[in-house]
Amino acid sequence: MRSELILTDEDLRKYPFLPSAVERVKELGLTLADVASSALKSVIERAGRYIEASIRNSEIPPPAEDCDEEIVSFMVSLLILKLIGDRLLVRRFAATFARRSRFFLGGEEQDKVLYLLSSLGIKVRRAGNAFGYPLSVNVFDYLSNMPERRGSWKLVHRIVERGWVYVGKAEAIRLGEERLRTLIERRVEEIKVDGLQIPDPLYSLAEKLSSEWGTYLRKIKENWAIAGVDDWESALPPCVKTIMDSVKAGKNVPHSARFMLASFMLSVGLSVEEVLEVFRATPDFKEQIARYQIEHIAGLRGSRKKYSPYKCDNMKTLGLCVAECNVKHPLQYYWKSLRHRTTTKRDKV
């Protein structure tokens, strides 16, 4: 938080989301029409590549050589995302972009990390190597941005002192990545397009990307149609249905909910592949990790223990129960409604 730390062009190029980057572009006085003009064609192309990368869930390409070009490209990306208007895609983009920034942050000196995290709104300070930790982070910032709620991230396993949690440099950066994700999502949400004169080149790019995204989503949906039971989903108990809807909408659902959804689907006879498809929509989806976790729940790994979905009681304590279904176990609900369905079918015949 030393004020004499001055951000260089190189910094703004790597971190085009920083408040001072926005300031700088304001000073340039660019209009949307300028951006769309042929002189700045590279900006629009770059923004397009960034969004395409997140549609395909691959890495965002490296930043432009020129700092201003990078900042404007980033801002144009956000505008295009707003025009496309799909939250799942926004989440995707935020996650992939934040990942690129984490990579850069990893190469920075500690003082700069401290400075950059503070400008993202994370309260962080030097810890003077107390207990071997270089930094400490405000406990509520830690809680809002912790990437996992188990293992070494779990708060009970940390040194927590008067509102501060000791962390290593890499951990601080990881918290920053999560924070950045939320900030990017919020930035897009806050853009107001009503009344903006959107130049044609921007518009047609948004349309093209939107249809690419649509194709991608349709592919996922097709994989969803599960052989055998048509209308499989409507038999789901309300709690599982709720989780599934959130996952499909690309929301970041808590670990307990993911566990429930995966174990439930496995219990009703879906394959690891099929479960994997469902989770593909999650913003931080990483196929290898997800596969590992699902196989673990299926009992194909580790302890070879097959995990069963939670009982209603557990669901209630976890805050995942959303209705009073008069059953003890969500699976019970599922089998009941399936049975009901087959009998009514037979009645008609």
Binding site: S144, R149, K154, P254
Partner: peptide, 11 residues
Amino acid sequence: LGQDGRREIVD
């Protein structure tokens, strides 16, 4: 603070 953060405080 969201639900997950609060659950972590509970734990």
